[in-house]
Design a binder for these strands. Structure first.
Ligand SMILES: [Mn+2]
Ligand SMILES: [Mn+2]
Ligand SMILES: [Zn+2]
Ligand SMILES: [Zn+2]
Lengths: 136, 136
DNA sequence: TAATAAGATTGTAATCATTACATGTTTGTA
DNA sequence: TACAAACATGTAATGATTACAATCTTATTA
């Protein structure tokens, strides 16, 4: 079940993170735009409503939300980071043609190999590339 | 079985890629340094032997080798790309403490979900993070 | 062999996402 | 209101990567 805006506000309060206007708007944007947006997209998307919002604030907020475990940074071969409201672990598929990043569910834990038995795994990423049905 | 330097030279010839001195040295470096080096590391590692080698040539060569399917770029949350002599698909584990990137074998194909049945998958990446046994 | 052209290499300058930092603003508390 | 802590902002710096133009190598041809 995807957390609501209110759920997330509660989580932030629980972690003693101030609910500033900018932070709430950035969170709201992430909830409403589940396309794994870039900082640039968040900036452009909020500009009409908060003309003074600075990119630095967006970077700061995303770092704080990531440290709190509410947001996850997606790394692709592009240089621009993309952000995902963290829900359960899931895989990402990027279409090389249209650039869309799709979510897919995957049971990662079932394939963790013995090679890693003595490692502490803190983060798991699955990232595929190719062509989406629309672009085929 | 890991390909030898000679194997790779044959593959390059087969693909009509010139075997310049610099390209062969960069390849040799990648074969002998299987630590997923950065461009900076390759540059520093070859500097004594080829003082005139430029980073542009390293970037160009890595791109050509990647297009030929002989080298794979590893993307991490760091901004510096790292390079791997492409063998079979395998997973990567980065230790957050010492920075080492470990290889591990994983049967990715066994977990490709139905979600992606209508997608064409061209590239698969598995990237874990955490702590290695040495750093525990 | 000399002339030529294509391909490789090099160094410098530009690009662009991200971060550092100093300044200004808001918020909560007494 | 007065004060301090936390936030937000804008500008400047950073650093990996790319663009580009000039130079060097190599192979081919006359
Ligand atoms: Mn996602
Ligand atoms: Mn590897
Ligand atoms: Zn597509
Ligand atoms: Zn380690």
């Amino acid at each position: 079940m995807k957390p609501t805006f209110e759920d997330i506000k509660q989580q932030l309060k629980a972690k003693n993170i101030s609910l500033s206007y900018q932070r709430l708007k950035i969170l709201e944007y992430l909830i409403e735009n589940r396309c794994h947006p870039t900082v640039e997209m968040i900036f452009a998307g909020l500009h009409d409503e908060i003309p003074t919002l600075s990119k630095t604030t967006i970077y700061n907020t995303l770092r704080i939300l990531e440290e709190a475990g509410l947001v996850k940074e997606i790394t692709t071969e592009d240089k621009e980071a993309r952000y995902d409201i963290a829900t359960e672990t899931h895989g990402h598929f990027k279409c090389e043609s249209c650039g869309t990043i799709f979510d897919f569910s995957v049971d990662i834990d079932s394939i963790i190999p013995g090679d890693l038995s003595r490692f502490v795994i803190k983060d798991k990423n699955i990232y595929f590339k190719g062509l989406c049905p629309r672009c085929l």
